[in-house]
Design a protein around this nucleic acid. Structure first.
Lengths: 194, 194
DNA sequence: TCCCTAAGTCATCGATCGATGACTTACCTG
DNA sequence: CAGGTAAGTCATCGATCGATGACTTAGGGA
């Protein structure tokens, strides 16, 4: 007996595995058979529960349990926290990449594009917005900073640029402070090493 | 008569179409039948000429006619030129995205990853390197700036963040100068509007 | 214990993909 | 104009994918 016959539990496990598969392999790279195999269930069950691969994908993204744990605390500590989350956290189950970066692989699909945008806007940008208070072009500055963090993550994990790939968090923090101060006109403290 | 029987010419046309297809649809999304169809030739011919889809891909990327026209001229004008190339150029045939950003869709494949890295390192980073002269962490600063440009391009075209998607080149140039100066410790001129 | 409902499975379809090998046709040479 | 060679085509294979519908089996209530 692999598992009890529980519709909701099986559905939830399918969604969990689908999330990882889609993020790691992209929409096209992840097959329904793969997801079903992870759960240890017949592929046909996926279609019984979700109707189609596309709907499985949409629901998996929409019910993302905890794609991002948005940090709180003093605003000027946010850049360092986001840097850690986006760049230096160990996302082993997502093939070493932040789920957001991994999801960009599927950006050809409209659903994924919308989902990523929503996550970036309502998540990261909403959190970063306070930093730009008092500046003109506040939204633009916020998005520019987010673009930088995203670009760093991509160069590190998806491209594998030599210096950045080897850089540690401590290497990046001073530059994070420099750019953050230039962009937001306020000092960005460098947290102590732990 | 569609075209003359010219092995080299047909090969070259296949490579051209393959480049666009791979960049726009990704490695998995682009089929050999698509590429052959673009050229108006039988798919089997592709295998006769290149052996496999993977080899077609590798050769298409390696012989990239002009994936990037690296700008020259005074070093402090490079940021603005790269911003235009990466973010504001009209890459209509690549579905509106810079080829480099489009190629990231295929970064799951090792070949593509290597190719993108090579292009970034020997292309953009090589050009930008001079800007960091005189700083410690010169390579890191260079890669961080490249990460920023890349991130801007991705947020604009692949994610579609609201403010950045609507921003014009003139909107971004002041911030480019600000961040560039902070990162490289030298003034970055803002070119006049044309 | 019986049995009915729902959870899960099996067999299979049609489309598409990469790939192969035998075939046909166009062009150049003598 | 004849004929050989190379450019290009056709038929087809095996694998994989999403998807469907009929089937089997588990398990709780009477």
């Amino acid at each position: 007996m692999a598992h009890k016959r529980d519709r909701e539990a099986t559905r939830a496990r399918l969604l969990d595995c689908a999330r990882v598969r889609f993020a790691r392999d992209g929409y096209d790279g992840a097959s329904v058979r793969d997801v079903a195999g992870d759960v240890g269930v017949d592929p046909a069950l996926v279609f019984r529960y979700f109707g189609s691969k596309s709907k499985l994908f949409t629901e998996a993204m929409a019910t993302s349990s905890a794609p991002v744990v948005l940090p709180d605390g003093p605003v000027d500590e946010l850049p360092a926290k986001l840097l850690r989350d986006l760049v230096f956290e160990d996302w082993a189950e997502y093939a070493g990449e932040h789920p957001l970066i991994a999801m960009l692989r599927s950006a050809g699909h409209e659903d994924m594009r919308d989902r990523v945008r929503e996550q970036v806007c309502n998540g990261y940008l909403g959190v970063l917005k306070e930093l730009a208070d008092g500046n003109d072009d506040a939204e633009l500055r916020t998005e520019l900073f987010a673009a930088w963090l995203l670009g760093i993550g991509i160069l590190r994990t998806a491209v594998g640029t030599p210096t950045l790939a080897k850089a540690t968090e401590q290497d990046l923090l001073p530059h994070l402070a420099t750019v953050g101060e230039a962009l937001f006109g306020r000092p960005i403290p460098i947290p102590a090493e732990d």
